[in-house]
Write a protein that binds this DNA or RNA. Structure first.
Lengths: 203, 203
DNA sequence: TGTACATCAGTGAACGCGCGTTCACTGATGTAC
DNA sequence: TGTACATCAGTGAACGCGCGTTCACTGATGTAC
């Protein structure tokens, strides 16, 4: 069946979004081409009308993941002043919600190890671009402090955020996992110059 | 050929060590049973004389990884006072050496994402034990500060250490990777109450 | 002490299985006349 | 306007391949007599 040009692009984007979600949840090697196509209501054979290979898909999906995460976040922080946007970002990042929803979360936490082991230059380049984007965003919200540049503080805060969520996901014990998130969130807020979270909002 | 009881155990430990290295470098799904056995000079069929399944091997290898990392570290910090041991731990952890040698490094950075996706209860329990061990070790070196418990500070510092190395490994650009390690190491040392590193030691 | 047998770590061929990829085919739609 | 043809997204069977696992077998050594 012949389809319009817009139809083809719509399908491509649907496959890309499905891949970006599934790969964040299960890793790039944890999802098959057939799984992704089935999730979009197609069969695996059609995949190669849109992507040269699975490697090509992974590289494009990495860009898609950062775009997804950024869009979701900007929907919440539009027009907030710097301190509030930063506080919102930290609280949403270092949360049980983010921990439990890797499919829609930040690629840093879910994809870093897979990409570190991968020889796929395009995917890694896309990852670098994504990391720089987040660092720039954080640095723009942060004033320099005690002679440490905003950029340096951004790198340090981002590392703790990503590490906290990665650890909280890996740890099986619910109390230990919650403890890690809670302590890290408090430390990160303090380091970012934000007031402590209000008590009583969480159980 | 019949072998002595010690021989069997020696083989088991050799397989376990080889698995612990290879899995940290390539992920548990990135190494095959046959690869590991070949690395020890045996064929794949003999594997099942030592382990019930690959899942069983992974769980035991996780324990082995933490033991390996701990032994390597204790060799360097034996009998050091707390502040020096802590400083040594941080400097070694957040380093290009550790970044470039995942096979002999901390399982937190290399295995967290894989275990988070895994349904293997035994492996995850072993990981929890390992995380608690590192947290206890760090907490013992850290005094409480500003009403924040040593344990809470340990969790926060460990998250940044693990996150920094994970990011530095994933990022492809050498400058960005080095920048992340350098800034995070400085921030972590400062937060741990240690003096800044001496300049001039690194190029 | 010497002999016959049992044991069992290790071998290597074989098995299902799922994966990424290929390919001949389909058929609705765009295009040329 | 109507007709013949070309296009190409999508189908589904088939392919090689590597993986985890099984299994009949080997043969040096421990054990029973």
């Amino acid at each position: 069946m012949r389809y319009s040009a817009e139809h083809k692009n719509e399908t491509r984007v649907k496959v890309l979004r499905a891949a970006a979600s599934a790969m964040r949840a299960h890793g790039p090697d944890g999802v098959g081409v057939a799984d992704i196509m089935r999730g979009v209501g197609l069969t695996h054979g059609g995949f190669y009308a849109h992507f040269r290979s699975k490697e090509d898909l992974i590289a494009q999906a990495v860009t898609q993941m950062f775009a997804d995460a950024r869009r979701r976040f900007q929907r919440v922080t539009a027009n907030l002043p710097a301190a509030e946007a930063l506080g919102t970002y930290i609280d949403r990042y270092v949360s049980t919600t983010h921990r439990d929803d890797a499919a829609r979360g930040c690629p840093l936490t879910s994809m870093a190890a897979d990409l570190a082991r991968s020889g796929d230059g395009a995917a890694r380049a896309a990852f670098d671009t994504g990391v720089r984007g987040i660092l720039d965003m954080l640095a723009a919200w942060l004033p320099a402090d005690c002679g440490v540049s905003a950029r340096a503080r951004a790198a340090s805060l981002l590392a703790e955020m990503a590490g906290a969520v990665a650890l909280a996901r890996a740890v099986h014990d619910a109390d230990l996992s919650a403890e890690i998130l809670c302590e890290c969130r408090a430390a990160i807020r303090a380091r970012a110059g934000l007031p402590p979270e209000q008590q009583g909002l969480s159980a």
